[in-house]
Simulated assay, not measured.
Amino acid sequence: MHGPVSPGWLLVALCAATGAYCLLRMRSGVEEQRGAAGGEALMGFGMAAMAVPAAVFSPPGWVWPAYAVVFGAAGLRALWAARSGRHHLHHVVGAAAMVYMAVVMAASPAHGHAHGASGTPVLTGALLLYFTGYVLLTGVRLIPVVAVAGGGAGADGHVGADGRAAAGWGDRPELARACRLSMAIAMLAMLLPL
């Protein structure tokens, strides 16, 4: 991607850390969690590789079409999975954004900025609006809710007073939301220079 080297490396670190966490979430006992975490891990590592500053490494020309194929396939898989739950539609949009960025990078001369004086392309603007809305909505959903006393296991995974076992750390919805939130913020940072 384009831009200064230091913020680029911070973006690489954020995306790689998110991808690594998503790999760990794949150990979940819940099949749907494992599937979503796998797609999110691919997205995190793909975004980390794409965010490496161009001043440090300029990938060969074949990389961008390969990105488009990989994330196109990931988008189709997410679209198929969306039959069982609408939350997979976010993965479809994320994969489409990655395909779009790969196509823009492949078409840009010397992988420079893809647009000139004409301003932000419509598709870039639409993706920026989507991810901005997603970040705001997910951020609001992460606001802590007061727990009912004695209502199950605590954050440490112990069994609560009612005898139910707590979900493992990989199955906690707030951690999955935080993971998606960090990738959506990174996606915004990557779309802005387009």
Rank of each mutant, 00 (worst) to 15 (best):
A167Y: 11
A102F: 14
H87E: 09
V159Q: 08
C179N: 07
P121K: 15
I143F: 05
D171H: 08
L76I: 08
F131W: 04
L76V: 10
I185P: 03
L79C: 06
G163K: 15
I185C: 13
L127C: 07
D156L: 09
A126F: 10
M105P: 04
A166Y: 00
G150D: 15
L123E: 08
W169F: 09
A186R: 09
P144T: 09
L142D: 00
R180C: 02
A95Y: 06
I143Q: 02
F131P: 04
G168W: 05
W80N: 10
H90L: 01
Y130F: 13
A126Y: 05
A107P: 03
G157V: 02
T120P: 08
C179I: 00
G125V: 05
V104T: 11
A184N: 11
A97D: 01
V146P: 06
G170K: 08
W80F: 14
M98F: 04
E174R: 08
A166C: 00
H87L: 07
P144M: 10
G133D: 06
I143T: 02
G75L: 08
W80V: 11
G119H: 09
V99K: 13
L79A: 14
A186H: 06
A107M: 14
A166D: 01
A149F: 15
F131C: 05
L89I: 05
G119F: 10
V93M: 08
V148H: 15
R164K: 13
R172F: 00
L175H: 11
R172E: 04
L136Q: 03
W169R: 04
R77F: 14
L175G: 06
V103Y: 12
M101V: 06
H91T: 05
R164L: 13
A97Q: 01
S108P: 03
H87M: 05
S108K: 06
G94C: 03
A147H: 02
I185T: 11
G72M: 14
A165L: 12
R83D: 13
R141P: 00
G133S: 07
A147G: 00
L76S: 02
V103T: 10
T138C: 05
R180D: 05
Y130G: 01
A147D: 03
L129A: 15
T120G: 07
A147F: 00
L76Q: 03
L181W: 11
G163H: 15
L128T: 03
A96I: 03
R83Q: 14
H115R: 14
L89M: 06
A155Q: 07
Y100N: 12
P121S: 14
L175I: 02
S182R: 04
S182K: 01
A114P: 09
L137F: 06
T124I: 03
G151N: 15
D162L: 03
V135Q: 05
G94P: 00
A161P: 02
V103R: 12
I143V: 10
R164P: 02
A110N: 13
A165D: 12
S182A: 12
T120Y: 10
V93C: 07
G94T: 02
V99D: 14
V103P: 08
G154V: 05
A184C: 11
V99N: 14
R86I: 09
R180W: 02
R83Y: 14
G125E: 10
H91Q: 09
A161S: 06
L123V: 15
H111R: 15
V159I: 11
G163F: 15
H111D: 15
H158L: 07
A102V: 10
A176H: 10
R172N: 01
A78D: 14
L181E: 04
S182W: 02
T120A: 12
